[in-house]
Structures are given as C-alpha cells and as structure tokens.
Computed example of a mutant assay.
Amino acid sequence: MTTQKIPVNTSIVSGVALSEIDGEMKMLLMKRVKGGYWCHVAGSIEGEEKGWQAILREFYEETQISVTELYNAQYLEQFFEANINVLQIIPVFAVLCPPNQPVTLNEEHTEYRWVSLEEAKALVPFPGQRQVYDHVWAHFVDNRPSEHMKVTIN
C-alpha cells in the first residue's frame, strides 16, 4: 500500500497594508470578486521573482499602491485547501503606507475599506486571517517594527 502525501504549495505571498487614515491607524481589506469575501493582498510568485518582488507587483496590480516601505512580517499564513488537497504556506509582508493612502482596485475586487483591527477580524471568514491581522497589528502598530525585518527594495 502506498502512502499518499499532501502537496505543499509555497508559491504565494501575501501582504497587509497599514496607513494612518484621518488620524487613526487602519489596515486595508478588499472584497474579492471570486468568493465574495474580505481579504488582504495576495498572489502568486511569477517567473524568477523573489517573494518580496511578487508582493510589490501584487500590491500595484490590485490597489495601485507603489510600495516604498516593506517589511517581512515574520509570519507564515498557512491553511489546508481541502478541495484541491494542498497545504498552502504563505509568507506575510507588512506594507507601511503614507497617511491617507489612496487605493484604486483592479477587477479582482469589488470594494475596499480601511478598517481597525477589530473591524478586520469581524469582516473576514477565516481564523487564519484573524491570526495574521493580530500578528501584524502587534508588531507593526502596537510596537515599532525591528529594522531587521525591513526589506530593502532595489
């Protein structure tokens, strides 16, 4: 008898954008067309891209945000996608945007909101998303991020 294994996919990255909106720190959530749920930016690494390059591209494609301050959030978003039998392991980045960051969505999303941590956790459907947001908020809003986590964009 052969033992089946669950494939692991590490070809996706995600990022949580933070901006001071009207004097309060908020995170960006967008409502996906596919599935109709709220989420942060995510996408596949293409070609010879490094993970950090993919998240810069994804941010621009999905939101028109040109990332200038990028951090490795030191967190792996992970979930089992039962319908395709794949374990997804996704490095998370934090994007620190200037105050009142404008957003222009592409066709993947129907709307966006800048929200507080509690609002974000109430909007999203998956426990893993709430864990990502708690982690990012704790290390990038409640505390100043370590310079060792900063990604040099070149």
Rank of each mutant, 00 (worst) to 15 (best):
L28S: 05
R130M: 14
E48A: 11
I90C: 11
M27C: 13
Q88T: 01
Y112Q: 10
R113T: 10
D22C: 13
N85V: 11
H40F: 14
V136P: 06
P99F: 11
F140E: 00
S146D: 10
K31G: 01
P145Y: 12
A17L: 14
N9C: 07
L96Q: 15
I6L: 11
M30E: 10
T68E: 14
L18N: 00
L117D: 00
V41R: 00
Q4D: 12
P145V: 06
L117Q: 14
L76F: 15
L18I: 12
N83I: 08
Y71H: 03
Q101W: 12
M1N: 14
L70P: 05
E81G: 06
V141W: 02
I12C: 08
T63P: 07
F79T: 03
E108H: 14
I55W: 03
T63V: 02
N100H: 08
Q4G: 07
D134N: 14
R32F: 05
T63H: 09
M1R: 08
A73L: 01
L29E: 01
N154I: 01
F80M: 11
W52R: 07
A73G: 05
I89N: 03
N100Q: 07
G47D: 12
N106H: 06
H135T: 03
V41E: 07
M25V: 13
Q53F: 03
I45W: 00
E108L: 15
N72R: 12
V41T: 13
C39G: 09
G35M: 08
R144L: 12
V132A: 04
R57C: 04
K121S: 02
F80T: 04
E77P: 01
A120T: 04
K31Q: 15
E81T: 10
E111M: 13
V8H: 05
N154Y: 13
E24T: 13
A17G: 06
